[in-house]
Structures are given as structure tokens and as C-alpha cells.
């Protein structure tokens, strides 16, 4: 067991751990998606109720993930939720002005995410633009309440 071999193997050990750390940071926690703002652009959407939507939830179109929710804030002017979306640059200038957004749930118990539905207009949403046509999240309590009140009327 020469000193050289010991040093080489320790070097390899440290490098392997460093690579593993990078994998954890990039591949597992998806850190690159946030820090690398150049590959995405920003679109805002206002919802009456975001339900259980959380930052980092996915934004899909036709079931394909095309972006992520960056942040969710209350808009003190209209008292609705202002959701900042980061959309992939590959979809830049491909979302029309009348694209609609709705908050969906994956599966019965799954997480909330945003689904976009394509519009027909010629004008495209620019960086920093806004999606006007939005549908709030389905809140189960509201549904049950409506169901019960409609039961009472009959």
C-alpha cells in the first residue's frame, strides 16, 4: 500500500462525493430549474382561489410539463391570488393571449398543478404577460356545500 495509492484513492473518494453532491443538487432537488432563469420566461395568472397549489408545482399543457409555479402571492388590489409561472423557453411566443389556465389535481389524493389550454388568438403572451382566462381550484368543501343546498331545494 504505497502513499501514492492512498492519496489517489482519497482524491477519487472526495471527487465521487462531490459529484454525488452535484447530482443531489441538480437532479434530485431540481435546483437548476430555479437558478437558471435564462431557459424560462415569466407569465402571471390570477386565480380566485388556488386551493392547495404550492410553489414548484408543475405547469402542464396537454399533460406535458412545460413549466413550474415560481411563487404565489395575494394581490391586495383585487384580493385574489397572483401566481407567477416560469414557462420553458421552448414555448415562448407559442401561447396565445386567450390561453386559459386551470388548477387541476393529479389523481384523487394527488398534488395540485396548473393545466393550460390552448387558445385561438393570433397575439402571443410575452415575457411578463398575463393569462386572463383562469379557473380556480375545485375546493371539495364548496362542492359538498353546493350539493347539499341543491339537495335541500328538491
Amino acid at each position: 500500500m504505497t502513499t501514492r495509492w492512498i492519496e489517489v484513492s482519497v482524491g477519487a473518494f472526495v471527487v465521487a462525493a462531490g459529484l454525488a453532491f452535484i447530482v443531489l443538487a441538480m437532479k434530485v432537488s431540481g435546483l437548476d430549474y430555479r437558478s437558471d432563469d435564462k431557459s424560462t420566461y415569466t407569465v402571471y395568472a390570477h386565480f380566485n382561489n388556488v386551493g392547495g397549489l404550492k410553489p414548484r408545482a408543475k405547469v402542464t399543457m396537454a399533460g406535458v410539463t412545460i413549466g413550474r409555479v415560481d411563487s404565489i402571492q395575494i394581490d391586495p388590489q383585487w384580493y385574489d391570488a397572483r401566481v407567477t409561472l416560469k414557462i420553458d423557453n421552448s414555448m415562448k411566443n407559442k401561447l396565445s393571449e386567450d390561453t386559459s389556465a386551470m388548477i387541476l389535481t393529479s389523481g384523487l389524493l394527488g398534488e395540485n398543478y396548473i393545466g393550460l389550454i390552448v387558445g385561438a388568438e393570433e397575439e402571443m403572451i410575452q415575457d411578463g404577460g398575463q393569462i386572463r382566462d383562469t379557473q380556480p381550484a375545485l375546493v371539495l368543501e364548496d362542492l359538498i356545500g353546493k350539493f347539499l343546498s341543491s339537495m335541500g331545494k328538491e
Partner: peptide
């Protein structure tokens, strides 16, 4: 495999978990 990694990246945060 897309949902394996995608769900992982959506829920694991660097500061909090790693």
C-alpha cells in the same frame, strides 16, 4: 421515469432537505 424524477424535483428542496 419522468414522473419519478419530476415528482422528486418538485417536492425535494435543496435548502430544506438536502
Amino acid at each position: 421515469d419522468g414522473s419519478y424524477w419530476g415528482n422528486m424535483q418538485a417536492s425535494v428542496t435543496f435548502g430544506h432537505d438536502v
